[in-house]
Computed example of a mutant assay.
Amino acid sequence: MQDPSAPSTAVPPLRLNALAPDFTARTTMGERSLSDYRGRWLVLMSHPADFTPVCTSEFVALARQAEAFAALDCDLMALSVDSLYAHIAWLADIDRRYGVRIPFPVIEDPSMVIGTAYGMVDADSPDSATVRATFVIDPDGIVRAISWYPMTVGRSVEELLRLVTALQTTDREQASTPAGWTAGEPLLEPAAVTLDEALTAEAGGQGWYTRERKS
């Protein structure tokens, strides 16, 4: 049993707007570093294990939408604690069974160094499986969005595309997106911060804290 008075070995959780921890690792497309992706958006995903049904469905769905991510200048990268050879065998099996070539690198992380740095693996957990985590990292290497799913629930690829599109749009337009926003729909202006602004917005027929702007 761990001594409660001993210093904690847990890595603090990665937070939004933090610099994503850099790494260099072997992948199914050769050695890659996180810093290789500076200047582009990146979706970094962990999956619990190779040869599992939910992960397989996600990889097939992601591969089929790879061109949509590329159109957003966004790359994809996946990670699990399985070995490089297990990754290769699994991706080859996906190719045979579904006729789908996985076009993004899959990182091996048998020592759990990367998974632990990103909080994907609990340092005190007896199980090496990573959670189903997703990090959206911007061209400056900053973590802009984080989502966590249990091992039993697959991610929505359409939502990932919407999320990256929304982040890019809000950066460019300096505005926010309302619930369920998709590309081309109105954006939300920042709420008025002076009485004059508020009254001007109200006079223009819009609420002072719900003003819309065409995207």
Rank of each mutant, 00 (worst) to 15 (best):
E108L: 01
T24I: 12
P105L: 03
T56S: 10
A92K: 13
A123N: 13
F135R: 04
D50L: 04
W148M: 11
S125L: 00
R96F: 08
A25R: 12
L62A: 08
I137H: 06
E197G: 07
L195C: 08
P48C: 04
A70Y: 03
C74D: 04
S125V: 00
M1N: 14
T169K: 05
Y209G: 09
G205F: 08
P186L: 01
Y37H: 12
R155V: 02
I146Y: 01
S33E: 05
A10N: 11
T170N: 03
T56R: 08
M29T: 07
V121T: 11
P110F: 07
S80F: 03
A191L: 01
E58Y: 06
P48F: 05
L187T: 04
L91C: 11
M120W: 05
F51S: 10
A71C: 07
A129Y: 14
R26E: 14
L42T: 07
I114M: 01
S128I: 12
R172S: 10
D196S: 12
I94Q: 06
L34D: 08
T52S: 14
D138E: 04
W41G: 03
L34E: 08
R144M: 01
I142K: 12
Y209D: 15
A129H: 15
A183T: 12
G180T: 03
L188S: 11
T177L: 00
S46L: 10
W181C: 03
T177Q: 01
D95P: 00
M77Y: 02
E212D: 02
P53W: 05
R211A: 11
L163Q: 13
P12E: 11
A6E: 14
E67H: 13
A198Q: 09
R15Q: 15
S125H: 01
A6C: 10
T210N: 14
M45H: 08
T169N: 01
V157A: 08
